[in-house]
Amino acid sequence: MREISYSEAIREAMSEEMRRDTAVFLVGEDVAVFGGVWGVSDGMLAEFGDERVRDTPISEAAIIGAGLGAALVGMRPIVEIMFGDFLMCGGDQIVNQAAKARFMSGGKANVPLTLRVTSGAPGSAAAQHSQSPESWFMNVPGIKIAAPSTPADAKGLLKTAVRGADPVLFFEHKMLYGETGPVPEDADFTVPFGQANVVRQGRDVTVIAVSIMVPKALAAADLLAAEGISVEVIDPRTLVPLDKETLIHSVAKTSRVIIAHEAHRRSGPGAEIAAMLAEEAVEYLDGPIIRVGAKNVPLPYSPVLENFVLPGVDDIVAAARLLASK
Protein backbone atom coordinates (compact mmCIF):
# COMPACT_ATOMS: atom_id res chain seq x y z
CA MET A 1 0.00 0.00 0.00
CA ARG A 2 1.26 3.51 -0.74
CA GLU A 3 2.46 5.48 2.26
CA ILE A 4 1.43 9.06 2.91
CA SER A 5 1.73 11.38 5.89
CA TYR A 6 -0.85 11.92 8.63
CA SER A 7 -1.30 15.46 7.30
CA GLU A 8 -1.85 14.22 3.72
CA ALA A 9 -4.25 11.56 4.96
CA ILE A 10 -6.41 14.21 6.63
CA ARG A 11 -6.34 16.37 3.46
CA GLU A 12 -7.29 13.32 1.41
CA ALA A 13 -10.22 12.53 3.70
CA MET A 14 -11.49 16.13 3.54
CA SER A 15 -11.09 16.37 -0.23
CA GLU A 16 -12.78 13.02 -0.88
CA GLU A 17 -15.73 13.96 1.32
CA MET A 18 -16.03 17.39 -0.30
CA ARG A 19 -16.06 15.79 -3.75
CA ARG A 20 -18.62 13.25 -2.59
CA ASP A 21 -20.98 15.65 -0.81
CA THR A 22 -21.44 19.35 -1.63
CA ALA A 23 -22.73 19.95 1.93
CA VAL A 24 -19.18 19.45 3.22
CA PHE A 25 -16.94 22.51 3.50
CA LEU A 26 -13.85 23.64 5.40
CA VAL A 27 -13.65 26.75 7.55
CA GLY A 28 -10.98 28.07 9.91
CA GLU A 29 -8.11 30.44 10.53
CA ASP A 30 -5.73 30.53 7.54
CA VAL A 31 -7.11 27.32 6.04
CA ALA A 32 -7.61 28.81 2.56
CA VAL A 33 -4.96 31.17 1.18
CA PHE A 34 -2.23 30.00 3.52
CA GLY A 35 -3.21 26.32 3.24
CA GLY A 36 -3.50 25.97 6.97
CA VAL A 37 -0.86 26.95 9.49
CA TRP A 38 0.03 23.25 9.71
CA GLY A 39 -0.23 22.89 5.91
CA VAL A 40 -3.03 20.37 6.16
CA SER A 41 -5.38 22.09 3.66
CA ASP A 42 -2.62 23.03 1.20
CA GLY A 43 -4.07 23.15 -2.35
CA MET A 44 -7.70 22.75 -1.32
CA LEU A 45 -8.60 26.36 -2.09
CA ALA A 46 -7.50 25.83 -5.70
CA GLU A 47 -9.68 22.73 -6.08
CA PHE A 48 -12.80 23.76 -4.18
CA GLY A 49 -12.80 27.59 -4.36
CA ASP A 50 -13.32 30.19 -1.65
CA GLU A 51 -16.99 29.32 -1.09
CA ARG A 52 -16.06 25.90 0.31
CA VAL A 53 -12.62 26.64 1.78
CA ARG A 54 -13.06 29.74 3.92
CA ASP A 55 -10.70 31.82 6.01
CA THR A 56 -12.11 33.33 9.21
CA PRO A 57 -11.29 36.01 11.74
CA ILE A 58 -9.31 34.87 14.78
CA SER A 59 -12.27 34.06 17.02
CA GLU A 60 -13.01 30.50 18.06
CA ALA A 61 -16.46 31.53 19.27
CA ALA A 62 -17.27 32.88 15.80
CA ILE A 63 -15.68 29.99 13.89
CA ILE A 64 -17.34 27.25 15.91
CA GLY A 65 -20.59 29.20 16.00
CA ALA A 66 -20.52 29.48 12.20
CA GLY A 67 -19.96 25.75 11.90
CA LEU A 68 -22.75 25.05 14.39
CA GLY A 69 -25.21 27.27 12.53
CA ALA A 70 -24.34 25.72 9.18
CA ALA A 71 -24.74 22.22 10.62
CA LEU A 72 -28.14 23.08 12.06
CA VAL A 73 -29.37 24.07 8.58
CA GLY A 74 -28.17 20.89 6.90
CA MET A 75 -24.51 21.46 6.02
CA ARG A 76 -21.64 19.19 7.12
CA PRO A 77 -18.97 21.69 8.12
CA ILE A 78 -15.37 20.83 8.93
CA VAL A 79 -14.02 23.46 11.30
CA GLU A 80 -10.27 23.69 11.88
CA ILE A 81 -9.13 24.99 15.27
CA MET A 82 -5.47 25.95 14.96
CA PHE A 83 -4.70 25.35 18.64
CA GLY A 84 -6.92 23.22 20.86
CA ASP A 85 -5.78 25.33 23.80
CA PHE A 86 -8.32 27.97 22.66
CA LEU A 87 -11.33 25.67 22.38
CA MET A 88 -12.62 27.25 25.55
CA CYS A 89 -13.09 30.55 23.65
CA GLY A 90 -15.86 28.72 21.80
CA GLY A 91 -16.70 26.62 24.83
CA ASP A 92 -20.36 27.59 25.05
CA GLN A 93 -20.87 26.83 21.36
CA ILE A 94 -19.48 23.33 21.96
CA VAL A 95 -20.78 22.43 25.41
CA ASN A 96 -24.18 24.11 25.53
CA GLN A 97 -25.16 24.36 21.88
CA ALA A 98 -23.54 21.76 19.62
CA ALA A 99 -23.68 18.98 22.23
CA LYS A 100 -27.22 19.79 23.34
CA ALA A 101 -29.08 20.89 20.19
CA ARG A 102 -30.58 17.49 19.38
CA PHE A 103 -31.78 17.00 22.94
CA MET A 104 -33.08 20.55 23.50
CA SER A 105 -34.96 20.40 20.17
CA GLY A 106 -36.61 17.11 21.00
CA GLY A 107 -34.67 15.39 18.22
CA LYS A 108 -35.61 17.88 15.49
CA ALA A 109 -32.05 19.17 14.99
CA ASN A 110 -28.79 17.35 14.39
CA VAL A 111 -25.33 18.88 14.48
CA PRO A 112 -23.11 17.01 11.99
CA LEU A 113 -20.17 19.26 12.86
CA THR A 114 -16.56 18.09 12.70
CA LEU A 115 -14.15 20.15 14.77
CA ARG A 116 -10.59 19.36 13.67
CA VAL A 117 -8.41 20.47 16.54
CA THR A 118 -4.65 20.36 16.91
CA SER A 119 -3.36 19.13 20.23
CA GLY A 120 -0.13 18.25 21.96
CA ALA A 121 3.26 19.82 22.46
CA PRO A 122 5.15 20.62 19.23
CA GLY A 123 8.25 21.59 21.25
CA SER A 124 8.84 24.87 23.06
CA ALA A 125 5.39 26.23 22.25
CA ALA A 126 4.87 26.80 25.99
CA ALA A 127 1.81 26.54 28.17
CA GLN A 128 -0.85 28.11 25.88
CA HIS A 129 -0.05 26.26 22.65
CA SER A 130 0.89 22.75 23.81
CA GLN A 131 -2.06 21.27 25.65
CA SER A 132 -3.95 18.04 25.05
CA PRO A 133 -7.52 19.00 25.91
CA GLU A 134 -9.33 15.74 25.03
CA SER A 135 -10.63 15.04 28.52
CA TRP A 136 -11.98 18.58 29.02
CA PHE A 137 -14.90 17.50 26.86
CA MET A 138 -15.19 13.84 27.88
CA ASN A 139 -17.48 15.04 30.65
CA VAL A 140 -19.95 16.51 28.15
CA PRO A 141 -22.47 14.01 26.76
CA GLY A 142 -23.43 14.68 23.17
CA ILE A 143 -19.96 15.05 21.65
CA LYS A 144 -17.83 12.30 20.19
CA ILE A 145 -14.08 12.50 20.65
CA ALA A 146 -11.51 10.97 18.30
CA ALA A 147 -7.72 10.99 18.66
CA PRO A 148 -6.10 9.07 15.78
CA SER A 149 -2.48 7.95 16.03
CA THR A 150 -1.79 6.80 12.44
CA PRO A 151 -2.36 8.27 8.96
CA ALA A 152 -4.83 5.49 8.11
CA ASP A 153 -6.86 6.04 11.30
CA ALA A 154 -6.76 9.80 10.71
CA LYS A 155 -8.30 9.33 7.27
CA GLY A 156 -10.80 6.66 8.25
CA LEU A 157 -11.99 8.30 11.46
CA LEU A 158 -12.27 11.75 9.86
CA LYS A 159 -14.50 10.38 7.10
CA THR A 160 -16.68 8.68 9.73
CA ALA A 161 -16.90 11.99 11.61
CA VAL A 162 -17.90 13.95 8.49
CA ARG A 163 -20.52 11.40 7.47
CA GLY A 164 -22.00 11.05 10.98
CA ALA A 165 -24.88 12.95 12.55
CA ASP A 166 -23.07 14.12 15.71
CA PRO A 167 -20.65 16.85 16.67
CA VAL A 168 -17.13 15.41 16.80
CA LEU A 169 -13.98 16.77 18.36
CA PHE A 170 -11.23 15.36 16.16
CA PHE A 171 -7.84 15.80 17.84
CA GLU A 172 -4.76 15.88 15.62
CA HIS A 173 -1.42 15.74 17.43
CA LYS A 174 0.96 18.29 15.91
CA MET A 175 3.95 15.94 16.13
CA LEU A 176 2.08 13.28 14.15
CA TYR A 177 1.45 15.44 11.03
CA GLY A 178 4.77 14.44 9.48
CA GLU A 179 4.51 10.74 10.33
CA THR A 180 3.89 8.48 7.37
CA GLY A 181 2.13 5.15 7.05
CA PRO A 182 0.08 3.00 4.69
CA VAL A 183 -3.33 4.51 3.90
CA PRO A 184 -6.03 2.84 1.76
CA GLU A 185 -6.92 4.74 -1.39
CA ASP A 186 -10.50 3.51 -1.38
CA ALA A 187 -12.74 6.60 -1.28
CA ASP A 188 -15.17 4.73 0.97
CA PHE A 189 -12.54 3.57 3.48
CA THR A 190 -13.74 4.50 6.95
CA VAL A 191 -12.83 3.50 10.51
CA PRO A 192 -15.81 3.12 12.86
CA PHE A 193 -15.98 4.98 16.15
CA GLY A 194 -15.85 2.96 19.38
CA GLN A 195 -13.56 0.29 18.02
CA ALA A 196 -10.13 0.12 19.66
CA ASN A 197 -7.13 -1.15 17.74
CA VAL A 198 -4.90 -3.80 19.29
CA VAL A 199 -1.73 -2.40 17.77
CA ARG A 200 0.55 -5.01 19.28
CA GLN A 201 -0.33 -8.23 21.06
CA GLY A 202 1.30 -9.08 24.39
CA ARG A 203 0.93 -11.17 27.51
CA ASP A 204 2.27 -9.30 30.52
CA VAL A 205 1.21 -5.65 30.49
CA THR A 206 -1.50 -3.74 28.62
CA VAL A 207 -0.60 -0.20 27.57
CA ILE A 208 -3.67 1.78 26.59
CA ALA A 209 -2.10 4.60 24.60
CA VAL A 210 -3.79 7.71 23.26
CA SER A 211 -2.63 9.55 20.11
CA ILE A 212 1.13 10.36 20.13
CA MET A 213 1.63 7.87 22.98
CA VAL A 214 0.88 4.96 20.65
CA PRO A 215 4.22 5.16 18.79
CA LYS A 216 5.92 5.79 22.14
CA ALA A 217 4.22 2.74 23.64
CA LEU A 218 5.40 0.65 20.67
CA ALA A 219 8.97 1.87 21.20
CA ALA A 220 8.65 1.00 24.89
CA ALA A 221 7.27 -2.42 23.99
CA ASP A 222 10.37 -3.14 21.89
CA LEU A 223 12.66 -2.22 24.79
CA LEU A 224 10.60 -4.24 27.25
CA ALA A 225 10.49 -7.28 24.98
CA ALA A 226 14.28 -7.43 25.27
CA GLU A 227 13.79 -7.74 29.05
CA GLY A 228 11.23 -10.49 28.69
CA ILE A 229 8.20 -8.29 29.36
CA SER A 230 5.57 -8.81 26.69
CA VAL A 231 3.50 -5.64 26.16
CA GLU A 232 0.11 -5.36 24.52
CA VAL A 233 -0.49 -1.91 23.03
CA ILE A 234 -4.06 -0.78 22.49
CA ASP A 235 -5.12 2.43 20.80
CA PRO A 236 -8.72 3.27 21.78
CA ARG A 237 -8.86 5.60 18.70
CA THR A 238 -12.03 7.23 20.03
CA LEU A 239 -12.33 8.24 23.68
CA VAL A 240 -16.06 8.84 23.28
CA PRO A 241 -17.44 6.30 22.53
CA LEU A 242 -14.88 4.12 24.30
CA ASP A 243 -14.42 0.48 23.30
CA LYS A 244 -14.62 -0.92 26.82
CA GLU A 245 -14.89 -4.50 25.65
CA THR A 246 -11.50 -4.60 23.94
CA LEU A 247 -9.83 -2.89 26.90
CA ILE A 248 -11.38 -5.23 29.47
CA HIS A 249 -10.57 -8.25 27.35
CA SER A 250 -6.92 -7.25 27.28
CA VAL A 251 -6.81 -6.53 31.01
CA ALA A 252 -8.35 -9.93 31.70
CA LYS A 253 -5.42 -11.40 29.79
CA THR A 254 -2.51 -9.38 31.20
CA SER A 255 -3.89 -8.27 34.61
CA ARG A 256 -1.64 -5.20 34.43
CA VAL A 257 -2.56 -1.81 32.95
CA ILE A 258 -0.79 1.36 32.02
CA ILE A 259 -2.75 4.23 30.47
CA ALA A 260 -0.57 6.65 28.55
CA HIS A 261 -1.58 10.05 27.21
CA GLU A 262 0.15 13.36 26.71
CA ALA A 263 -2.60 15.20 28.61
CA HIS A 264 -1.92 15.97 32.25
CA ARG A 265 -2.30 12.98 34.53
CA ARG A 266 -4.87 14.61 36.78
CA SER A 267 -8.35 14.04 35.27
CA GLY A 268 -6.86 13.22 31.88
CA PRO A 269 -8.49 10.56 29.67
CA GLY A 270 -6.69 7.96 31.84
CA ALA A 271 -8.76 8.94 34.86
CA GLU A 272 -11.97 7.87 33.11
CA ILE A 273 -10.45 4.72 31.65
CA ALA A 274 -8.93 3.74 35.01
CA ALA A 275 -12.21 4.31 36.81
CA MET A 276 -14.06 2.23 34.22
CA LEU A 277 -11.56 -0.62 34.59
CA ALA A 278 -11.79 -0.42 38.39
CA GLU A 279 -15.56 -0.67 38.15
CA GLU A 280 -15.81 -3.38 35.54
CA ALA A 281 -12.58 -5.37 35.63
CA VAL A 282 -11.16 -5.01 39.14
CA GLU A 283 -11.10 -8.76 39.66
CA TYR A 284 -8.54 -9.19 36.90
CA LEU A 285 -6.09 -6.59 38.18
CA ASP A 286 -2.81 -7.77 39.60
CA GLY A 287 -1.42 -4.38 40.51
CA PRO A 288 -2.37 -0.72 40.50
CA ILE A 289 -3.60 0.94 37.32
CA ILE A 290 -0.77 3.29 36.38
CA ARG A 291 -1.30 6.49 34.41
CA VAL A 292 1.55 7.88 32.36
CA GLY A 293 0.89 11.49 31.41
CA ALA A 294 2.23 15.02 31.64
CA LYS A 295 3.05 16.20 35.13
CA ASN A 296 0.44 18.49 36.67
CA VAL A 297 2.09 21.80 35.78
CA PRO A 298 1.59 24.18 32.83
CA LEU A 299 3.92 23.07 30.02
CA PRO A 300 7.23 24.96 30.14
CA TYR A 301 8.97 26.68 27.23
CA SER A 302 12.46 25.44 28.17
CA PRO A 303 13.15 22.23 26.23
CA VAL A 304 14.84 20.72 29.27
CA LEU A 305 11.87 21.43 31.51
CA GLU A 306 9.36 20.49 28.80
CA ASN A 307 10.97 17.10 28.31
CA PHE A 308 10.86 16.57 32.06
CA VAL A 309 7.14 17.37 32.21
CA LEU A 310 6.01 15.43 29.12
CA PRO A 311 5.55 11.67 29.29
CA GLY A 312 8.03 9.61 27.29
CA VAL A 313 9.04 6.11 26.30
CA ASP A 314 11.09 5.76 29.49
CA ASP A 315 8.04 6.52 31.65
CA ILE A 316 6.13 3.66 30.05
CA VAL A 317 9.13 1.35 30.42
CA ALA A 318 9.51 2.24 34.10
CA ALA A 319 5.81 1.72 34.79
CA ALA A 320 5.81 -1.66 33.03
CA ARG A 321 8.88 -2.79 34.98
CA LEU A 322 7.21 -1.78 38.22
CA LEU A 323 4.04 -3.70 37.37
CA ALA A 324 5.88 -6.77 36.13
CA SER A 325 8.08 -6.68 39.27
CA LYS A 326 11.28 -6.62 37.26
Binding site: S255, D286, S325
Partner: peptide, 28 residues
Protein backbone atom coordinates in the same frame (compact mmCIF):
# COMPACT_ATOMS: atom_id res chain seq x y z
CA UNK B 1 -3.97 -7.04 44.42
CA UNK B 2 -7.57 -8.10 43.69
CA UNK B 3 -6.29 -10.94 41.52
CA UNK B 4 -3.89 -12.19 44.21
CA UNK B 5 -6.66 -12.03 46.82
CA UNK B 6 -9.03 -14.00 44.62
CA UNK B 7 -6.38 -16.63 43.86
CA UNK B 8 -5.44 -16.96 47.53
CA UNK B 9 -9.08 -17.34 48.48
CA UNK B 10 -9.54 -20.05 45.87
CA UNK B 11 -6.45 -21.93 46.96
CA UNK B 12 -7.05 -21.50 50.68
CA UNK B 13 -3.79 -19.62 51.14
CA UNK B 14 -3.26 -17.16 53.97
CA UNK B 15 -1.91 -13.96 52.43
CA UNK B 16 -0.50 -12.88 55.79
CA UNK B 17 2.16 -15.57 55.45
CA UNK B 18 3.45 -14.14 52.15
CA UNK B 19 5.62 -11.18 51.30
CA UNK B 20 4.81 -9.01 48.31
CA UNK B 21 7.06 -8.20 45.36
CA UNK B 22 4.69 -5.84 43.57
CA UNK B 23 4.45 -2.05 43.61
CA UNK B 24 4.47 -0.61 47.16
CA UNK B 25 5.23 -4.11 48.45
CA UNK B 26 1.81 -5.46 47.57
CA UNK B 27 1.32 -9.16 47.07
CA UNK B 28 0.74 -9.96 43.39
Amino acid sequence: TPKARAAARQQGIDLAALSGSGPRGMIV
